[in-house]
Measured scan of single mutants.
Amino acid sequence: EEAIQNFKALLSDMVRSSDVSWSDTRRTLRKDHRWESGSLLEREEKEKLFNEHIEALTK
């Protein structure tokens, strides 16, 4: 649960536009030290959280 919250915070800070792809964003996020705290999450979970974040940005 904490890993999810940390990853959501990372997305909020780093992803402000809804027209970015997961693969491009992932490359950028990996450069942030907080990426490692999400290592407990599966890749699919990270992508799902990313997609939810993008959906929220479009509303």
Rank of each mutant, 00 (worst) to 15 (best):
E1G: 07
E1L: 05
E1N: 00
E1F: 02
E1T: 08
E1Y: 00
E1Q: 07
E2W: 03
E2P: 03
E2I: 09
A3Q: 11
A3P: 03
A3T: 06
A3F: 06
A3D: 14
A3H: 08
A3Y: 06
A3K: 07
A3E: 09
I4A: 07
I4L: 05
I4W: 00
I4P: 01
I4N: 04
I4Y: 06
I4G: 05
I4K: 12
I4H: 13
Q5I: 09
Q5E: 11
Q5D: 08
Q5T: 12
Q5P: 02
Q5N: 11
N6K: 13
N6M: 07
N6H: 06
N6E: 10
N6P: 00
N6Q: 13
N6V: 07
F7D: 01
F7N: 07
F7L: 00
F7H: 06
F7P: 06
K8R: 12
K8D: 00
K8H: 03
K8A: 01
A9I: 06
A9W: 01
A9M: 08
A9D: 09
A9N: 13
L10M: 12
L10T: 05
L10A: 06
L10F: 13
L10R: 03
L10K: 06
L10Y: 02
L10E: 04
L10D: 06
L10V: 04
L11A: 03
L11N: 08
L11D: 03
L11Y: 02
S12V: 12
S12M: 11
S12I: 07
S12A: 14
D13Y: 00
D13G: 01
D13L: 02
D13W: 00
M14T: 11
M14H: 13
M14K: 13
M14A: 12
M14P: 02
M14D: 04
M14G: 05
M14N: 10
M14W: 09
V15H: 02
V15L: 00
R16S: 11
R16N: 09
R16K: 14
R16Y: 05
R16E: 09
R16H: 12
S17K: 07
S17Q: 11
S17D: 13
S17W: 02
S17I: 00
S18G: 09
S18L: 06
S18R: 07
S18A: 15
S18Q: 10
S18V: 13
S18N: 08
S18K: 11
D19Y: 03
D19Q: 10
D19L: 02
D19W: 01
D19C: 07
D19E: 11
D19K: 11
V20Q: 09
V20C: 13
V20H: 04
V20M: 11
S21M: 05
S21L: 05
S21A: 04
S21T: 14
S21Q: 08
W22I: 04
W22Q: 06
W22E: 09
W22V: 05
W22R: 05
W22L: 02
W22H: 08
W22M: 04
S23A: 12
S23P: 08
S23F: 05
S23N: 13
S23V: 11
S23Y: 08
S23H: 13
D24L: 04
D24S: 08
D24W: 02
D24P: 01
T25D: 01
T25I: 15
T25Q: 11
T25M: 12
T25F: 15
R26A: 15
R26K: 14
R26C: 14
R27P: 10
R27T: 07
R27A: 13
R27M: 11
R27Y: 06
R27D: 14
R27G: 11
R27Q: 14
R27S: 12
T28R: 14
T28W: 10
T28Y: 08
T28M: 15
T28A: 14
L29G: 02
L29F: 02
L29S: 01
L29N: 01
L29H: 03
L29D: 00
L29I: 06
L29W: 01
L29P: 02
L29Y: 01
R30E: 15
R30G: 09
R30M: 15
R30F: 04
R30W: 05
R30N: 10
R30K: 14
R30Y: 09
R30T: 10
K31G: 10
K31C: 10
K31I: 04
K31P: 05
K31D: 10
K31F: 08
K31L: 12
D32N: 02
D32T: 09
D32V: 01
D32P: 00
D32Q: 07
H33A: 08
H33V: 15
H33S: 13
H33M: 15
H33I: 14
H33L: 09
H33E: 10
H33R: 14
R34N: 07
R34D: 06
R34S: 02
R34C: 02
R34P: 00
R34I: 02
R34M: 04
W35Q: 02
W35P: 07
W35S: 07
W35I: 04
W35E: 09
W35M: 07
W35Y: 11
S37K: 12
S37L: 10
S37D: 14
S37C: 13
S37A: 12
S37P: 06
S37Y: 10
G38R: 07
G38L: 13
G38V: 14
G38I: 12
G38Q: 10
S39Q: 13
S39A: 14
S39P: 11
S39T: 10
S39I: 08
S39N: 14
S39C: 11
L40V: 14
L40W: 08
L40P: 12
L40E: 13
L41G: 03
L41T: 02
L41Y: 03
L41P: 10
L41A: 03
L41N: 03
L41H: 00
L41K: 04
E42N: 15
E42Y: 08
E42H: 14
E42M: 13
E42C: 15
E42D: 15
E42T: 15
E42F: 06
E42P: 15
E42A: 15
R43T: 15
R43D: 15
R43C: 15
R43N: 15
R43L: 15
R43M: 15
E44Q: 11
E44Y: 06
E44S: 14
E44I: 06
E44F: 04
E44G: 13
E44A: 12
E44K: 13
E44M: 07
K46D: 01
K46H: 07
K46Q: 14
K46S: 08
E47G: 00
E47F: 03
E47W: 06
E47P: 00
E47H: 11
E47T: 03
E47S: 02
E47N: 03
E47L: 06
E47D: 02
K48C: 06
K48L: 08
K48I: 05
K48Q: 11
K48S: 08
K48W: 03
L49Y: 04
L49T: 03
F50K: 04
F50I: 03
F50N: 02
F50S: 04
N51A: 09
N51K: 08
N51R: 10
N51V: 04
N51F: 08
N51L: 08
N51Q: 12
E52L: 06
E52C: 06
E52F: 00
E52N: 03
E52K: 05
E52T: 06
E52H: 05
E52A: 09
E52Y: 04
H53N: 07
H53D: 04
H53G: 01
H53T: 04
H53Q: 03
H53L: 00
H53Y: 01
H53A: 01
I54D: 06
I54N: 05
I54Y: 01
I54L: 09
I54A: 04
I54T: 08
I54C: 11
E55R: 11
E55K: 11
E55T: 12
E55Q: 13
E55L: 10
E55A: 12
A56N: 13
A56I: 09
A56P: 04
A56E: 14
A56H: 12
A56W: 10
L57G: 02
T58S: 13
T58C: 08
T58V: 08
T58E: 13
T58F: 04
K59P: 12
K59Y: 04
K59L: 10
K59Q: 12
K59I: 07
K59V: 12
K59A: 12
